[in-house]
Amino acid sequence: MKSFAKSAITVVLDRLAEQTRTYVPMRDGVTSNFSPWSERRASDLALNSLNTTFSPKGIVFPQTERLYDFAVDGQRADISGTHAETGENILFGARACDRKAFAALDQVFLRRGYVDTNYKARRDGLTVIGRDCLQPGPFCFCDSMGVDPMGADGADVLLHETTEEFGWEPLTEKGQALTLRLNDLLTEKELIRPESAGCRLEVNVAGLPEKLRGMFDSPVWDELSTFCMNCGVCTYICPVCHCFDIQVMNNGSSGCRFRCWDSCMYPEYNLMAGGHNPREGKRDRFRNRFLHKLEFFQERYGSFGCSGCGRCLVTCPHSLNMVLVINRLGEVKVDAS
């Protein structure tokens, strides 16, 4: 298998970033994020960390995205400048959970009739270099959500990690193209691929979507949401959450329309034009988020709206999270009648 020494990582990244913006996991103060390689110091490289604080979804679905500009002059209105980015990007070192999340976003934005132009442009321009996940963290539960931490799904190239080396396995045409660029840096070597230690945290989701169909009015939602504060942390750090709003920045006679992430935790998310809010209380909003991820998403797309990345486990201010919710939902007895 082709491979490069771990010590040569900066050379490889420099080469990739020469032609294409390359997002790598980088430390940023007390947080970490997938950031463009060229903009940051090599000492911030956080390849050894587990999941980054913020998920890479912003690369294909930015938090704020300018859609078009407008100008009004008397009775005339001009619309100009669509800002969809068509450039190419590389995502380096994406783990199976984040790649699974991309697959979920693809379902939403590309596969069910309507194709989202901006998302498609970014997604088509993205080459994903995945990596093995040998040591899932204490808060990872991807294998319970049907994700194989060593799997190759969603990767154009898969990096096999050994103690000294990264094996380079191109899987798609995009991956082959990158291989050509790196050819002189890669050497042919026999690599023994270690086993993944697997996730220590487990949840049982068997039969959960079916069970949830009868649990809409369960008092368990009151109990679980008691300490939810309805902030949007979980939705914004979640790699799968994808709700957005379209808003206007108005500067008198000109302005722009933009799309920004929205959160089902916010009261105005559900607010209707007439002033009615169908999900008025936090119980309703909390229930909606988890039913969406565990029931509705599964019904519509055949997979859960959660990839088990574990980010919500370390970020929720009141330590509520997917694992806690799934476990509690599993305990509840539902009256079959």
């Binding site: 430390r27 960390s49 587990l50 999941n51 604080t53 808060f139 970020t315 330590s319």
Partner: peptide, 14 residues
């Protein structure tokens, strides 16, 4: 800070 400890345990800060 549980979250800070958890983040530390998640490997970010070695």
């Amino acid at each position: 800070d549980q979250a800070a400890c958890d983040r530390a345990a998640s490997g970010l800060f070695g």
